[in-house]
Design a protein around this nucleic acid. Structure first.
Lengths: 123, 123
DNA sequence: GTTCCTTTAAACCAATTGGTTTAAACAAGA
DNA sequence: TCTTGTTTAAACCAATTGGTTTAAAGGAAC
């Protein structure tokens, strides 16, 4: 439980049932029983899944009259996208750069082409 | 291991060490020993982490001379972003719609406002 | 107040996970 | 070939996870 927020979000979405719940909540709020109905597991198991999603900040259960609805929290997705975007972008840049290097090596001949390019020397 | 691709990717990134590895690979390829150096765990543990990342398609280890480099595979990020984008967008739309409904309820008086709006009736 | 549904809690279980250590197979360089 | 560094594999361990069942507490409606 003392794991960081990002780990909690990723871990929460690593389970197919939990992703399915998120998918269904994306189209409409639902009560726990509604959510549990299609699955072949106990209602308590669904409560457990919801607690995981809740602790990850992906879902909230606003208080109110008894069959409390479960609501998708769009905010947690931003955390994810921020992280992913950051590294994906860098990776793609590196690929483009690598492609240029390979192309240059290709037309220059293959005598100097070794595997020492991982020492970064970009500005 | 018979889990689906998306689960593997999410699970792989649910570990901070693994995310750190990805982050470092985003700036430059590295050998396993280079990757393992800053951590206080055994090199074998890092190999295990890399196997997880590899099976998730986030990383590849192109064959070649002995200290084989580890390379970030940008492709797997697309899977993630695709999934996230889909549901985040829907969730946001629903929020906007809900805001309108609430605003309408607000200026119409609060006698009819119950919690039955999760039966979707959008076209 | 009782009864019924919803929610939370607890004890338990099998499987997975993130590590370890030890050992063996591979590849290169001297 | 011998030695050294890299990679993979195996056996083990503690902690976590995704489920279960059972039980109890909270709220609504009658």
């Amino acid at each position: 439980m003392p794991t960081d927020a990002l780990s909690r979000v990723f871990a929460a979405l690593a389970d197919p049932t939990r992703r399915d719940i998120v998918a269904r909540l994306a189209v409409a709020d639902a009560t726990v029983n509604q959510l549990a109905e299609p699955y072949r597991m106990s209602v308590q198991a669904v409560y457990k899944h919801l607690r995981v999603l809740e602790e990850a900040g992906l879902v909230s259960r606003p208080p109110g009259p008894q069959p409390r609805p479960v609501r998708l929290e769009a905010g947690a997705f931003d955390l994810l996208e921020e992280w992913i975007e950051r590294y994906r972008r860098r990776a793609e840049e590196r690929y483009r750069r690598l492609d240029r290097v390979l192309a240059a090596m290709d037309q220059a001949g293959e005598h100097a082409g070794e595997h020492d390019e991982h020492e970064e020397r970009q500005p």
